[in-house]
Design a protein around this nucleic acid. Structure first.
Lengths: 342, 342
DNA sequence: ATCATGCGTGAATACGAATTCACAAGAATA
DNA sequence: TATTCTTGTGAATTCGTATTCACGCATGAT
């Protein structure tokens, strides 16, 4: 049998509301009584019931995270791991817990939407989506439900959203290679329909403007093996082989590294490399892989602060659309050619 | 203003309990009335309130996951990523959501325990801990709270627990190297006080029994760089250099690969390698890194099924302590020496 | 015809805490 | 002394749903 406020009240010879006042720190309780109640609570190891509390006070203390991925599609995704890790970090000590859900298809999306939001299970939602074209978003807006999008809102300025500034990241990566003395810079991209490819490629295009006449772009599937094959069969055999590559992510870059090694090319002597994400694998090769770090902590912190502000009725600071700048971590694969050659 | 069962009842000209019965699928409602109520519910877009429901019916529909890690300590941990991903996979379509929390220290542990369990926020708990010496575990047992441990219960047979069979994994890895023709097999381990090191080392010891007189064990810190230094400075300079290494995890193995390459040694010609976890990085080197796969899906599925059974009042099948067998994924670093040499 | 049975329904209550409201007792003011 | 104004407290109500209980009606058995 559970100890309730009513039980505590009876034992301490006060009324249940008084116990409630003590629990929630309402000042209007005489010090003597307060102490007595606290004592009884401690003695009986009382713990308030979150459900009853939330039913009455309209605060669930839960923040939902919804990710749309195929089954098993998260385990190898370092972005997701960092994301959820950063959210959990952020929430430590705050009066919210993380409620994480995955959906497979549009069908279960809507179900989850009802299940999580309209049933008032969570106070707000973090949506992770590369593009916010979803019907959900409209429903969320129509219902005035607090939510923040991590990803691209497709120009919808009414949505609170946070994203990595992938255009900037692409520019930084390319610019860095120019600065290090590389002159024919190529881009090893992912599938052209993905936002991340589009954005980083856009940054690359901006950076080469005026410095390199011809963009050198190759599209490949994700993953190190696909990138390795593309590098071997299409980049290294191209009529105009670049002297440096911006690669869409660390895994693909590692594939490129393999292909270059097999070919007998030195890095960065024959080919400079910069990739994105700055994941743990960047340190797995001699000298390290230069990579543009995504600053996921800041991204998550910004998103969470916006969301919590919205939930708690404050107007969040800053613009609705926030882009988190990236910073390059320069390692061996982008050292100046002179240095690399001596 | 929210639509409640009472509202629906009034509109459909029935009583609130009848609406409740329709919602929860209680059969004892006349078909005509049921249809009318359903119609009104649809027309007004009714969604039950999870909080009220759970207050009354004692079911939160949440499963808690508690991980003890330092701040930021999850983002680079592929085990954790697979774990949480597998849990989310498992829960898709089931009447439970995942509530994930991280604690930093023993202090916040207890707070979280109160916050999650005793406040009845979650129905059950998944504890991820290498060793269950925690005070929490005793409290969980004392309170008869449904929970399952992922990790080592330290011989406590009263606890439902699931773990990778790391002893078996260590044996498999070592055995495999013997089978491939290696004869002086070393073990590059992590810090000796960690359970994972102890268990896999135990498997190694079992496997070399009778086949190799002397165990060859080196302890190192976690991470590729520490492993690389250990390999370079202590293994490759040892009086008795092994011809193959079992390495505690993929990252450390990649460090060993680096050291071997710098040394000019070929893999597996001069040194065979097998590691553990079978993470994505195994495919980042030419030929691939042989690794013992942990089968986290099965582990998580077993743990979750046990937990859900316990929550729903059924006695879970199988033994309290379950060990999930691992399977070796053989790749280039453990190819037979003859093959490697021709 | 009579009585046990079963079914569908609504009134009432439970779940546990927060909040509203009214009402004491005491202090401060006129 | 009579009248406000505090201040602290408890009775009652609220949140939205599930459950218990009792009642009325119809069915079937006797």
């Amino acid at each position: 049998m559970r100890i309730t406020q009513a039980d505590i009240a009876k034992i301490a010879n006060v009324s249940q509301p008084t116990v409630s006042r003590v629990v929630s720190g309402d000042g209007r309780v005489e010090e003597g009584i307060r102490q007595r109640v606290l004592e009884v609570m401690r003695a009986h190891n009382y713990q308030p019931d979150a459900r009853a509390r939330s039913l009455r006070s309209k605060r669930a203390g839960l923040i939902g995270l919804v990710v749309k991925r195929p089954k098993g599609g998260l385990s190898d995704d370092p972005f997701f791991a960092s994301l959820i890790s950063a959210i959990m970090d952020f929430l430590v000590g705050k009066p919210y817990h993380l409620c994480a859900d995955m959906t497979l298809d549009a069908q279960s999306q809507v179900g989850l939407y009802d299940e999580l939001l309209r049933s008032r299970r969570v106070d707000g939602l973090i949506l992770v989506e590369s593009e916010a074209l979803d019907e959900r978003v409209h429903r969320l807006q129509a219902d005035h439900f607090p939510f923040v999008l991590i990803g691209n809102p497709m120009g919808n300025e009414a949505i609170w959203s946070v994203d990595n500034d992938n255009v900037l990241a692409g520019r930084i990566a390319t610019q860095h290679l120019f600065d290090q003395g590389f002159r024919r810079i190529g881009f090893l991209a992912g599938p052209s329909e993905t936002t991340v490819t589009r954005d980083r490629l856009e940054g690359y295009m901006q950076a080469i403007r005026g410095r390199q006449n011809l963009p050198l772009v190759w599209h490949s599937d994700f993953g190190s093996q696909a990138a390795r094959e593309t590098t071997r069969e299409r980049i290294l055999t191209a009529p105009n082989v670049p002297d440096a590559l911006v690669v869409l992510d660390d895994f693909m870059a590692m594939g490129a590294v393999q292909a270059l090694r097999e070919f007998g090319a030195t890095i960065p002597g024959d080919m400079g490399l910069v990739s994105f994400n700055d994941s743990a694998i960047c340190r797995l090769i001699e000298g390290g892989l230069s990579s543009v770090s995504l600053n996921i902590e800041t991204l998550v912190q910004t998103a969470c602060e916006r969301l919590v502000d919205t939930i708690e009725g404050r107007e969040p600071e800053g613009p609705r659309r926030t882009l988190i700048p990236s910073a390059l971590v320069s390692r061996g694969t982008s050292q100046p050619r002179e240095v690399a050659r001596r």
